[in-house]
Structure formats: structure tokens, C-alpha cells
Write a protein that binds this DNA or RNA. Structure first.
Lengths: 189, 189
DNA sequence: CAGGTTTCGTATCGATCACTATGGATAATT
DNA sequence: AATTATCCATAGTGATCGATACGAAACCTG
């Protein structure tokens, strides 16, 4: 998973995987069928172990603004974990691919689209609950948030620290009006 | 350039380039030395022909906010041009790379860093001119703007239309307080 | 302890990668 | 017009890709 995360699907060779896992080629193929299946296994593992913050943030019983704040701050932390490759596997895995790896690229794109859809759904819920400001469109703002997270992924890959990513997240959050509810512009936010 | 833009450095094979350019392998190597040099040529060509909007936006004699607006709107248009690969070559070219292509990945990273530095410089100028709101840090906000542009690049690659990217850009712009100058919250903007 | 079966690592498969040596066609010179 | 020189496309180079065939070692059964 770390190798795919770091180098992407195509640039990760079986030789690298073999050495990292300490397995012989037949063992790898017995266990994972082929490289593509292995990558998909890594994808689901990544989804389960590395980005739980997203589901947590979007399903927590908090205000919409707080949910988005947790989402962005969680991304800042998850994309810059020490000892882990920077950024998000869904972005780094195969942004550009050769024609024969198009299926993998499409699958990652589907993951990204699903993330955006989940954000949009949470915003729509906020709209229904009435704590999403009138001026913001759920789908449009979801695209913004998803875009910012993708951008954070690249910034992390370029070496941005967790603090810098938090500042970026906080800046993005300023695009969501406060609705003037119970929490004012207190201390740090 | 289009092939590298679409598939990235490593996933673009000499066979694809050969067919696209209608040249034989020796012709390619006579003209461009090797694949790496050819890619660098494509990079500079891309820089010259596709993203002039950035330099224009940052050097135009307009307010800082307007400069950033033009930058983001220019990106929205440039990243979704019909007939061109979506997104930005500097992002798609080699986000993740195999160890032997690390030099290419580093070069693209340097381009991205340079873009961010150019934004930071423009914001610092705005600070000096006094039209950058007190609350925003030039470096931090530059990282935000660069990150949003990178995110737009990925959204574009995922099929976002120019209108959707414009909405994203406009949303990001909301993170920059208006400073309450001559232009009010009129009509559209 | 012998025989048959299964497992597993090595060595290699064909395909493709970036890249280049060589033979044939063209052009220049006498 | 004959000969020499130059260019250039085809064919092939070693290396590496993902994926496997085969021989050896281990294990259970009789």
C-alpha cells in the first residue's frame, strides 16, 4: 500500500513489491491473483485504515460548518503523517496513466467522485437542517471542498507540513460564511 | 506535449510519441536527444503557450483581489479547454513516479513551487501597497491559492466543466476578504 | 521407512521499454 | 555517367515489465 501510495500504480514494479513484502513472485500471485487485484486490495485497505476521518467528520452530530472543518483538518493531518507518503492515495495512485491502465485511473476517479458526492450529501443535509447559508450551493461548494482536499494532497506531496496544511484548510473554511450562530469568532476557532 | 499532458511522463511511450509526431525513432533522438529532454522541451512549450494567463494575471495593474480573481478564472478556463487534456501538465506530468524518474518529478515540483512563489510575491506586493487585508498572511494565502489551482487541475481531469471550475474559483475567492474598497458586492462577482 | 503428492523458489517466459547499429536509398562529386 | 559519400528507416540491442513453468524439497500416507 505504501509503495502504491508513494509511486502510483504503474510506477510500482512487482520487484519493489516483492522486496517490500518479502515474498516470491508465485506467492504474490497466489495471494493476490495479479497486480491489479493487489492494487485494489491496497485501495480498500487504505480506505479502511487511513481516511476514516472523512466518514467520521461527515457523520458526526455537529453543525455543517464544523463537519467541513473536521473534514479539512482531518485531511491536513492524514495527508502529512510522518512515516507515510504525502498526500492521498486516491490522487497519487494514478492521476495520469497509460492507456492499458485506464481502468485503474477510472477506479480512482470514481473514488474521488464518491468523496465529493459524500460531501455534497452532507451539505444537502445541512441545507435541510437550515445551517447551510443561503448563498452557497451544496454541489458547488462540495466541489470546492473536494478540490481543496485534492489540492492539499498535492501540497502535502510537495512537502507541506501539517501546520501549513492546517492554515490552508482554515483559509478554505473562510469561504463558508459563519451563518452567525451560537459560536462567534472566538479565540482561535 | 499533449501526450505527456494526458498520460504523464512515464506512461507516455516512445511508440506513442513516434506515431503522434510521424517521426522515426532516430529522427526523434536526433531532434531531442532523449525522452527526458523531449519532455523538458514540452514543459517549456507548455509554459509558454498554455498558461500565459498566470503571468498576465499576476503582473496586471489591478488590485490584489482582482489579480487573484483573474488567476483563478484563467486557471478555470485553461484547465478545461476543449480539445486539450484536462488539468495542468505540471500536476499531471508526474505526480507519482518510479525511482528512476525522480528527477522529472522533482522538476515538476519545482515548477509548482515557483508558481506558488510567484503568487506569494504578488500578495507581498499587495501587502506593501496596502490592499491585502490585515488578517491574511501572504505565504499562507499563496499556498491556499496554489492548492486550489492544483485541486482545480484534478477536478478538471475528472471532467469538471469550465462553469464548475469557475464556481470553484469564485468560492475560493470568497476566502479573501473584500477590504471594502471601491467595488461593492455588485451584480455577479 | 518408502511412495506419492503437494508446495514453493528459481529461472525464465513473451512483451515492451528506451534507445541504436546497420543496410539501402539518395545526393553530391568528378 | 560512374563513384563516393551521406542520410535515414528498418530491424534489433540489452534491460525490465508482469506473469509462470519446472525442478527440488517437504509432507502426509501406507
Amino acid at each position: 500500500m505504501h509503495l502504491f501510495w508513494e509511486h502510483g500504480y504503474e510506477a510500482t514494479s512487482l520487484a519493489m513489491l516483492r522486496e517490500a513484502m518479502g515474498l516470491t513472485p508465485p506467492q504474490i500471485y497466489n495471494a493476490f491473483t495479479d497486480k491489479e487485484t493487489l492494487f485494489r486490495k491496497a485501495l480498500t485497505r487504505y480506505h479502511e485504515t487511513e481516511i476514516g476521518f472523512a466518514l467520521e467528520a461527515l457523520s458526526a452530530p455537529v453543525s455543517t460548518r464544523e463537519a467541513i472543518r473536521r473534514l479539512l483538518m482531518g485531511a491536513a493531518e492524514a495527508y502529512s503523517r510522518p512515516g507515510k507518503p504525502g498526500g492521498c492515495l486516491f490522487v497519487s495512485g494514478a492521476l495520469a496513466a497509460s492507456p492499458q491502465a485506464q481502468a485503474i485511473a477510472d477506479e480512482l476517479k470514481a473514488y474521488r467522485k464518491a468523496s465529493e458526492a459524500a460531501i455534497a450529501q452532507r451539505l444537502a443535509k445541512g441545507r435541510a437542517m437550515g445551517d447551510l447559508p443561503e448563498g452557497v450551493c451544496a454541489e458547488g461548494f462540495a466541489k470546492f471542498v473536494a478540490g481543496v482536499m485534492n489540492g492539499m494532497s498535492i501540497q502535502a506531496r510537495d512537502g507541506a507540513s501539517v501546520e501549513e496544511l492546517r492554515v490552508l484548510a482554515q483559509t478554505a473554511l473562510a469561504a463558508l460564511p459563519d451563518e452567525g450562530q451560537n459560536q462567534g469568532a472566538s479565540s482561535k476557532e
